[in-house]
């Protein structure tokens, strides 16, 4: 066991730590949520991370995005993710994909991974991600934030989670995001991700909803389609 992982023990077993090193995930979106996801998953020791984002850093990112730094203004978020992980742990393989997820590249982006993590910032892209994961047959962990609120849910292939969370005609009007929302979101997603990767039990068909303004934390049982 490398010393860098000794404080993972005994919360994780030696065997579970080794298992994480063999696992592959895609983090789609390297902004608010995605930046923290990459940090958490690389530090705990997930072996391969595909970091996907076509965007570059802008001054409006600095209030919440872990990867954003003044010298990186105008630079690729996906490449910043790769560089940061190399500084933390060069034995983690990061594959930066400097493209936005779309219908043409989505299947390729989620293929070859044990699990996919939603770090996206809009509903249409989430529908594309959900469809691609259903087609490839890989689960993903949804995360979204707005203002003081964070929500997280596991989606099994074809369970229709996104259509349930975002019914036709729904739109979110609060475009603000406070700094603690993406870090909380990514922490909950990362914990679920690690449990799924090492085969510990998780609950599907539920939405974890955190309102940090009112300190209200809800577990909502969803009426999802039976996964295909």
């Amino acid at each position: 066991m490398e010393r860098r992982y000794e404080r993972n023990i005994p919360a994780l077993s030696d065997q579970e730590c080794r298992l994480l090193r063999s696992k592959r995930v895609a983090v789609v979106g390297c902004g608010g949520i995605g930046g923290y996801l990459i940090e958490l998953l690389s530090r705990i020791g997930v072996g391969y991370i595909r970091a996907v984002d076509g965007d570059v850093f802008d001054e409006s990112n600095f209030n919440r995005q872990l990867l954003s730094e003044q010298p990186l203004m105008g630079r690729s978020k996906a490449k910043a993710a790769e560089a940061r992980v190399q500084r933390i742990n060069p034995r983690i393989e990061v594959e930066p994909v400097t493209a936005y997820l779309d219908r043409n590249n989505a299947k390729e982006i989620v293929s070859g991974c044990d699990l996919v993590l939603d770090g996206l910032d809009n509903i249409p892209a989430r529908r594309v991600l959900a469809d691609a994961c259903a087609e490839v047959g890989v689960p993903y962990i949804h995360g979204a934030i707005s203002g003081w609120v964070t929500q997280v849910a596991i989606s099994m292939p074809g369970d229709g989670l996104i259509d349930v969370l975002y019914p036709e005609g729904v739109s979110f009007r609060d475009r603000s995001v406070l700094s603690f929302a993406p870090s909380l979101c990514a922490s909950v997603q990362a914990a679920l991700c690690v449990k799924m990767l090492i085969g510990r039990p998780v609950e599907t068909g539920v939405l974890y909803y955190f309102d940090l303004l009112n300190q209200e934390f809800e577990t909502i049982k969803l009426d999802l389609k039976k996964p295909e």
């Binding site: 995605g34 509903i123 707005s146 975002y166 739109s171 979110f172 909502i220």
Partner: peptide, 8 residues
């Protein structure tokens, strides 16, 4: 009733 949460 819960509002949509969609950002990232």
């Amino acid at each position: 009733l819960f509002p949509p949460v969609g950002g990232g």
